[in-house]
Amino acid sequence: MFQKALLNEIVVFIAVAECGSFTLAAESLNSTKSGTGKAVKKLEEGLGLKLFNRTTRSLRLTEEGRIFLEASKHAIDTINEAKLLLESRKDDPAGRLRVNMPIGIGRNVVNNLKYFTQEHPKVTVELALSDRFEDAIQGEWDIVVRIGELEDSSFIAKKLCLSKRVLCASADYLATRGIPQSLHELRIHDALMFRASNGKIRPWMFQESSGNLTEITPNALAILSDGRSFVDAVIAGMGIAQVYDVALGSTIQQGQVIELLPEYAMPGPPINALIPSGRVMPAKTKVFIEFLKTQFNLA
């Protein structure tokens, strides 16, 4: 009878089906091939059904096996959902929290991460900085922070703040080269450009009071492809760049970096915290999202 099938046997069955091999499934479960085979056989006997068609060269699900696999995965998801629900009910956030963020805006979060850990010492934050979309949609992340939207239905977006593209340079650079008073004067200055993850150099975009857009692609003194080195080059005085304001952190307030031609500032996309869909948001995730909002000046 189905009621006698152990949860462990179902977990083993799912592993075999997804790996397509008893050997690989055993390795993923830290078990033995023999033990894995026995668990599946016992499950089949309990169900009174054949779940796999086996040959010496292949292992394929039967039609009944495909149906049972779908139902089994749904059942495991329901159990995990219940676990997360119980975790979310805890007053004191705890556990490991895996977060993936772009390098440029993540650098400022790293600088202030100690304030979060001081307030929530039972939460261990595992933070990875990457500009690659592939890194965002792969792996078991609790929170993925990205500029703009990800066209992936497996995530739900929680808006952290809006952004704008700020033309800026360091105070030291401007003291030496002068402050440009018009878009035309930008052509005589050193330009720092950013190469996006799609391989394209991001042009400078400006919005006039009339709403018209102006695009400029100056001759670049340097082209950088990660957000950290891009902002560091601006701070170091290498030249003028157009940067998302959230990547600059407090450098403008502290006077390290000066915003130029603010009347042409270009509205940027929202900054979103993306969480896996179909899950109850645990307390550790909720408090970290609130922390991120304070970091991006949206308490």
Rank of each mutant, 00 (worst) to 15 (best):
D190M: 05
V166F: 03
T214D: 01
S209P: 00
L160Y: 03
S182L: 09
S170G: 01
S170D: 02
E151L: 11
D226C: 07
F194Y: 15
A171V: 12
E140C: 12
A136P: 05
S170I: 00
Y173H: 06
P180Y: 06
W141R: 07
N219C: 02
S197A: 15
S197M: 03
A222Y: 09
R187S: 13
G139H: 07
N219F: 09
S130M: 07
S197N: 12
D142H: 14
L160D: 04
L186H: 12
S209H: 13
E215P: 00
K159V: 14
K158A: 06
L160T: 00
T217K: 08
D152H: 13
F206M: 02
D142S: 09
A175C: 08
E149G: 02
E140W: 10
W204K: 01
L167W: 01
F194A: 05
L160E: 01
R165A: 13
R187H: 11
D172S: 15
A169F: 04
S153A: 14
R132K: 15
F194G: 05
I147Y: 10
A233V: 04
T214A: 00
G199S: 04
G199P: 06
I188W: 05
I235H: 06
G148Y: 02
R146F: 10
M205F: 07
S225C: 03
D142I: 13
L167P: 05
K158T: 12
L221F: 07
M238P: 00
A220H: 05
E215K: 15
C161S: 15
S210E: 02
S154T: 14
V166W: 01
G211S: 10
S182Y: 04
V231S: 04
I179D: 06
Y173P: 06
N212D: 15
W141E: 07
D135M: 05
S170F: 01
L192D: 00
N219I: 05
E149N: 13
F206V: 02
C168H: 09
C168N: 03
D232R: 10
H189M: 10
V234L: 03
W141A: 10
P218N: 02
I216D: 02
P180Q: 07
A191S: 15
A233M: 02
F230W: 03
V166Y: 01
I188V: 13
N198L: 12
E185M: 12
K159E: 15
V145H: 00
D232L: 03
I137R: 13
I143K: 09
L213S: 08
A157H: 13
F230M: 09
A196K: 14
S130V: 07
Q138V: 10
F155L: 06
I201A: 10
Q138G: 07
N219H: 06
N212T: 09
D152T: 11
A196S: 12
I147P: 00
R132I: 03
P203A: 08
D226P: 06
D172H: 14
V234I: 12
N198D: 15
R187K: 11
I147T: 15
S163K: 07
L162E: 15
G178A: 14
D172I: 12
D152I: 06
A136N: 10
Q138K: 13
T214N: 05
